[in-house]
């Protein structure tokens, strides 16, 4: 009797073990399942903007993948698009890494946005090679919740972008890659590509590409009312 029970248990165990690789495979963000879509909605990480979440396939930034943000002009609200997400991650105790930010990340503003400064690490690697190395190591370490990097003067090769995407998947890390608007014409392995522009008053988001979801939509997000409130300057 004992041996029969054992046998049954073993069989169940081995069945579970057999199923596991398939489960692992199905959780990969780049595999699109039509049948399971309604049953198992994989959630993204909420961006903090309801309108944007509604457009994104998993109601948020894609987990463990690269999101490209194409921006030409600084100051149109591109950081405020991801700051709520970064703040949420640091509050959960995850590390957030900025690689070669264009200017000094200003601590008072970051704290106002809710970021825990002790979880924020800023890297200044010199040269394209070190930059990519640092990005890849941080992404795949599994220690970091989100990594934000800015494309330097030269555009990284397609294979480097692919490596970053794979590293983000391995390390389960959010990856935001700021690139100039001109790179919209060249294909990219990123899961999500957003083109950010300003229409004068608001931030205009154009969804260029989205795996597992529709693309081509446009969205207008208002800037924080504190900033654009018009009082009459004395000057």
């Amino acid at each position: 009797m004992n041996s029969a029970e054992n046998f049954m248990q073993n069989k169940q165990l081995s069945d579970q073990a057999d199923k596991q690789p398939l489960q692992q495979l199905l959780t990969r963000p780049d595999i699109w399942q039509l049948a399971n879509r309604q049953r198992q909605p994989r959630t993204g990480i909420g961006s903090g903007y309801r309108g944007l979440d509604a457009l994104l396939a998993n109601h948020g930034w894609p987990r463990a993948a690269t999101s490209e943000l194409l921006v030409d002009k600084a100051g149109i609200g591109e950081m405020s698009l991801i700051l709520p997400t970064l703040a949420q991650l640091t509050r959960q105790g995850r590390m957030v890494i900025l690689i070669n930010p264009p200017h000094i990340p200003y601590a008072p503003a970051l704290v106002q946005a809710g970021i825990q400064l002790e979880k924020l690490l800023i890297l200044h690697p010199r040269g394209q090679r070190d930059q990519l190395w640092a990005a890849e190591q941080s992404l795949q370490s599994g220690a970091c919740g989100a990594l934000v990097n800015w494309q330097g003067k030269e555009s990284p090769a397609d294979k480097d972008l692919r490596r970053l995407q794979v590293a983000a998947r391995d390390g389960d890390c959010l990856h935001f890659h700021f690139r100039p608007g001109s790179s919209a014409d060249t294909p990219s392995p990123a899961t999500l590509r957003l083109k950010l522009q300003s229409d004068g008053e608001q931030l205009a988001v154009h969804l260029l590409k989205q795996l597992n979801g529709k693309s081509g939509q446009r969205l207008h997000l208002a800037r924080s009312p504190d900033l654009v409130r018009r009082d009459q300057p004395l000057h």
């Binding site: 000094i104 601590a107 800023i122 890297l123 200044h124 640092a134």
Partner: peptide, 11 residues
């Protein structure tokens, strides 16, 4: 990257 390439920010 060297010690100086890493930093954080504080208030």
């Amino acid at each position: 990257l060297g010690h100086q390439a890493l930093s954080g920010v504080t208030l």
